[in-house]
């Protein structure tokens, strides 16, 4: 119960800070829109020619905006040493990690929710489906879990903006592969069996695994 209340308090604090400043969501959203627009006009020579590349483009955009959001998540804690305030409090490191992860997840889902319709219109694809929503949710949980962990590590260094993507993308490759493959099947209207039997289970297993590993290592790294 204490874990849950502390986790929600930390996540709600991040949401409230974001509502006040809007710096993470707005900057990530603008960046995401630019990526979608640039890809569209840079590659779209004939109508429909981007369809095979569309899933990759979507997840490249999501990956980049995710890194922007993650970088801000712990930068905010560094500004007045607030991370020390969290770590000095009698709450488990799991609660600190999960609270920060939930905040990042919320920001990413908002940004992705806004970008998806834009993506659908620009690339003329049927991108609004419940299955795609589930793929995005599971992949974003993986992004937020791994990203929050590496953002916490990177925030302790002077070159955090560079270090985070260098650490993050190699580990998140299985999620990107599963998300791109599943998204391709959904957008192309192909057989959905592989989505349900292969790619979604892969995402679930990845999420479950890293939801255990990341808080555990976070607790060790930040144990006083």
């Amino acid at each position: 119960m204490r874990l849950l209340s502390a986790t929600l308090a930390i996540a709600w604090k991040d949401v409230r800070l974001e509502i006040r400043s809007r710096d993470t969501v707005v900057s990530a959203l603008i960046f995401g829109l630019i990526v979608v627009v640039v890809f569209n006009f840079g590659l779209n020579r004939t109508p429909g020619s981007l369809a095979p590349a569309a899933p990759g483009l979507l997840w490249v955009a999501y990956g980049f905006v995710g890194v922007l959001a993650m970088n801000r998540a712990f930068a905010r804690e560094q500004e007045q040493g607030a991370l020390d305030g969290l770590l000095a409090a009698p709450v488990s490191r799991d609660a600190v990690f999960l609270g920060k992860m939930l905040g990042t997840l919320a920001f990413m889902l908002v940004i992705e929710g806004v970008l998806l319709p834009v993506f659908a219109v620009m690339l003329d694809l049927p991108a609004l489906s419940p299955t795609l929503g589930l793929i995005i949710l599971l992949a974003t949980i993986g992004f937020a879990t791994v990203g929050t962990f590496f953002a916490a590590i990177a925030a302790q260094t002077r070159s955090r903006e560079i270090l985070l993507p260098v650490l993050f993308f190699p580990v998140i490759v299985p999620v990107i592969i599963a998300a791109v493959e599943a998204t391709a099947l959904v957008l192309q209207g192909g057989p959905m069996q592989a989505v349900w039997t292969r790619w979604l289970p892969l995402l679930v297993v990845f999420d479950a695994l890293f939801l255990v590993i990341c808080p555990w290592i976070f607790g060790y790294v930040f144990e006083g």
Partner: peptide, 10 residues
Amino acid sequence: GHQTLLYSDL
């Protein structure tokens, strides 16, 4: 500590 450990936008 030396820093306030507070959130400036709250």
